[in-house]
Each structure stands twice: as C-alpha cells, then as structure tokens.
Design a protein around this nucleic acid. Structure first.
Lengths: 193, 193
DNA sequence: TTCGTTTTGAATCAGTCGCTTCAAAACCCG
DNA sequence: CGGGTTTTGAAGCGACTGATTCAAAACGAA
C-alpha cells in the first residue's frame, strides 16, 4: 500500500520517556526529542501529533513498564512487610543513584510539574498512583490475613499511609542524600503497621 | 550620589516568587518575570544577575515567609498532635484550593524540577525541609514530655516519619482531590505516634 | 548648577521554541 | 513495472528565549 515506517514506535516512545523523565516537560524541546528518538520533526509530528501528546504516551509507557515493575516487586515471595520494604528500598536506591541521573519518579515529576495545568496528565499520573495504592492494599490485606499485620484497621487506610510515606521519601531523596535516614523512616513506617 | 531605584526589591522578589511558584523554573520566561515584577529587563539583570539568581532569591523568600508560617503554625497553642494536624490540614487545604492556583509547595516543586540540576537550589530547598523537620522534632519532643506521645521512640525518627507522610500527601494532592481521604491519612499518622 | 553615578526604557542580539510545509523517496499492490 | 499512498528529510515559519547594549533620565553631592 505505502511506504513503511523506518522506526519502531515503542522504541521512540521509550526514548521520549527517558528524555522527558530526565529534563521535565518544559525542559525538553522538540529538538531534544528528535535527537533522542532519531526521528525528524515531520515524522514525530505526523505520528504523535506534538510534544504534549508524546508526553502523554510517555506517561502511558511509564505505567506499563515502571509502575508494572513496582507492582511485580510487591508480589515477589516474602512476608507482607518484606515486600513493602523491598519496593521502597528499591525506589530509594534508584533515586539516590547518580548513574541513573537522579531523575526520580517520572509520575511524581509529572504530578508536580504538569498535573495542575493538564487534566489528561493528571489522569495519567493518578492511574499510576492508584495502581500502586491498590497493590499496596492487597499486600496489606494479605499481611492481615496471615496475622502479620493487626486486622483492626482498614487495609485501604494503611495502604494510603504507606503510599504517602513512600512518595514523601522520594521527595526528600531529591535533596537528602542520607540513605540511612531514609531507610530508618521506611522501617518506622513498617513497624507501625 | 546617584539615581535611586524606582522599585522595592522585596516586592520584586515576592512577585518573582509567585511567578516561579505557579509556572516552575523552565515554564517561566524572563519576559514573564518582567511583566509580573514591572521591571524592565535591564533593571532586572542589573539588580539580580539573571533568571537563575532571581530563582534562588525567590527560594530564600519562600523560606523566610511560607516556611516561617509553617513553623509558626506548629507553635500555636494546643497539644502536640493538634499542632501537627493543624499544619498538615492547612497545607492540604491550600493545595486543593483552586483560588490559589493549585501551585503546591514551592520548595517541593523546586526539589522535583531543579534540585538535581543545581546544587544551590538543592541547598535552598533542603534548608526549607530541614527547618520543618527540626520544628516537627521539637513538637514531637514536647508531646513526649507532656506524656501525649510515648517516649519509647526517638523524637527525630518520629518527626521524619511525619515529615515524609506530609510531603507524600502534598504529592498526592496534585492528582487526588479527595480531601477526606487525605485527611484520613493525616489522622492515621497521628494515631501511630 | 554642574558633575559623577546609577537606573531606566527601548531596541536588539543570536539562538531556540513548537510546529508546518512540501517535494522527493520508499514502499505495497495489482 | 506503474499507480497510489505514506514517510521522510530539509528548509523554514513566526514567535519567543535569556541576555545585552546604550543613550537618556534622575538623582545626590559639591
């Protein structure tokens, strides 16, 4: 029928996600995106529509990959608290790793930078957060069923408490390099469950 | 000796802070700053040096005003838990208020958007966070002395736990409008102390 | 009033912004 | 191979970026 594309759409979105993740929405120019994806501007606009649409696609990709990994990590073998700890530990170590560029959590970055200005971004970010919350809830529920966590309190409420502390720690990790202090807070949270 | 300035430097910094706060660092242009401050570009550059320096001054101003208000709110009359609750409640209501433009916490915005790229911004933000942490620690200590909070655990550790949950809630408030759910998490945190 | 100093506004710098246009190239189907 | 369709690269759109220049204006001190 017609000329086929020379690029893999998934690869392009992944490359765009990396760029947005590292430099933010306003900090990323269309030329940056062309450079990192290897696409010319016409291909980029022809395929995705524009910078904003590509950003939304990048957030979807984040949900499908990184958020999925977080969920998977919560479902690895171990007690409920061990699994909660593993997820938080992994994120903190990732946040503090210079080799990863200290880019933090892409969904959180989008929440802070763009969510107030763009309802679609807000929805995409909430989708990530809600998915994590649901899985935290499941893990807490399992812990309660196993007698590891007291059943007196609502699993959802406990999950939200863990979730808040978790994202708070990821904020602090942007300016606070003391890994031990962050880990101590993780353990305080788990001890309270 | 020479021609005096036609503007009040404090007013200019405050106006610049509002603009940076609302639109972020990259989202604010020098012309935006000229418009909001009323200064011409030459006056602005002559006085402050450039956009980055003005941003740092804006962060200092945030510390001197908003962070100071948070600290003051922690020192109002009432029990320790009442004071902790008052601070968190005030911030959440501020975050959810459309009339305030849903701009969140300027220090947190700076932490997420700029801190990784600019050590001076990182320091300025940490100054805000550390000030809040210290005051939280004092309040927790007072609660322990009054018998309101068990003395078994380190006040500093408890303060950091509250602080993490606090900033986590402010992240969630960017995409989550359910005030009751956020407040429930505040109460869960306080109940655990 | 005159001098020396600083501030101010207007104009403008080269470079970049997000985005568009368009003709040539590349493909599949018949 | 020819016809129809899509993708591609290059060039460029007007607007805006952070920053600078410079002469005129506005003051205090002598």
């Amino acid at each position: 029928m017609a000329r086929p594309r020379q690029f893999d759409e998934d690869r392009v979105i992944t490359a765009a996600m990396e760029t947005f993740w590292r430099h933010g929405y306003e900090g990323t120019s269309t030329r940056d995106l062309c450079d990192s994806t290897g696409l010319g501007p016409s291909s980029l606009y022809n395929t995705f529509g524009g910078k904003r649409e590509l950003y939304l696609r990048a957030l979807e990709r984040y949900y499908a990959t990184v958020t999925a990994e977080q969920v998977a990590r919560l479902n690895e073998p171990g007690s409920a608290k061990e699994r909660l700890r593993a997820m938080m530990l992994h994120s903190i170590d990732s946040d503090l790793d210079d080799a990863e560029g200290r880019r933090g959590c892409f969904a959180m970055n989008a929440a802070v930078e763009v969510a107030a200005l763009d309802p679609d971004v807000k929805s995409a970010v909430r989708r990530c957060f809600d998915r994590v919350e649901d899985e935290l809830c499941a893990v807490v529920g399992a812990g309660q069923a196993a007698g590891e966590i007291p059943s007196g309190r609502d699993a959802r409420a406990l999950a939200r408490l863990v979730q808040s502390t978790y994202y708070g720690l990821r904020v602090l990790s942007r300016v606070q390099d003391d890994r031990k202090a962050l880990l101590a807070t993780v353990d305080s949270t788990l001890a309270d469950l």
